[in-house]
Nucleic acid binder design. Structure first.
Lengths: 125, 125
DNA sequence: AATCTGTCTCGACGTTCTTCGAATCAGAGA
DNA sequence: TCTCTGATTCGAAGAACGTCGAGACAGATT
């Protein structure tokens, strides 16, 4: 059995297809790590982590770029760049409506990452 | 109330002190994002994600560097460098016993990251 | 003490990332 | 159609990153 598997994709992750067991239970295959690492990397910048949090916790389920940008001491292009990174990582989706662009979180991949990090409580407790 | 809080530390996270609500429920403060982002960043490289998975899933709860290195097509110094990154992110601990060095996962911070990413199922389901 | 093995540190190299200002694109309204 | 505003793309500068080989360090064995 060589590397014949069609290789997990971002779409799979967001479709909710379970990618693998928690890392505390089983080793991640190299191909899976290659697909998942970019998502963690996208969350690995303080600005993007805050953006992700603002988007994921938006009361309406979505939030306008015009509401995100003023929260940072950064230029518009920089925020736009970070949003693109989150988009390419499959963590958020964007939709343009008229002049404004709205972002919303992709819960599927967030759940995947959370379950990957899940740690069971010690057996004897 | 200005920024008077003593600023969350890695030690707090590994002590299990809850840092904050899931990002889908509430915005992360900037200071918190600054503390958490490095942990995600550490997991944002395929090699480190695999290392973390090998360490966290080690049957004995720990694993020797000599068992980690051969799993990669990378030099010893490179693996050592990645392990240092995981250590500095608070994700793993190392202990030397004789000639060998053993790594084990820090479950506290892993739980924090997992709960941060947690997404509740939609209300109506 | 000399040596051997496993691991880490150091310095260097090329690549990638973060950030910016300038320019561009997409709609809305005059 | 012209212009205005919101958002993105482009190109550039500096910092950070991943990788390596050479060398240093820590214990164990002789």
């Amino acid at each position: 059995m060589s590397k014949q598997m069609p290789a997990l994709t971002l779409a799979d992750l967001n479709a909710g297809k379970p990618c693998c067991a928690p890392i505390s239970e089983q080793r991640i295959p190299a191909e899976t790590a290659a697909v998942l690492a970019p998502a963690f990397k996208a969350l690995g910048d303080p600005v993007r982590l805050r953006l992700m949090s603002m988007i994921a916790s938006a009361p309406a389920g979505e939030i306008c770029v015009c509401d995100l940008t003023p929260a940072f001491d950064l230029s518009g292009p920089t925020i736009s760049h970070h949003l693109k990174t989150l988009r390419e990582a499959g963590l958020v989706d964007a939709e343009r409506r008229g002049t404004w662009v709205y972002y919303r979180a992709c819960p599927g991949i967030m759940r995947q990452l959370a379950s990957l990090l899940h740690v069971g409580t010690p057996a004897g407790v």
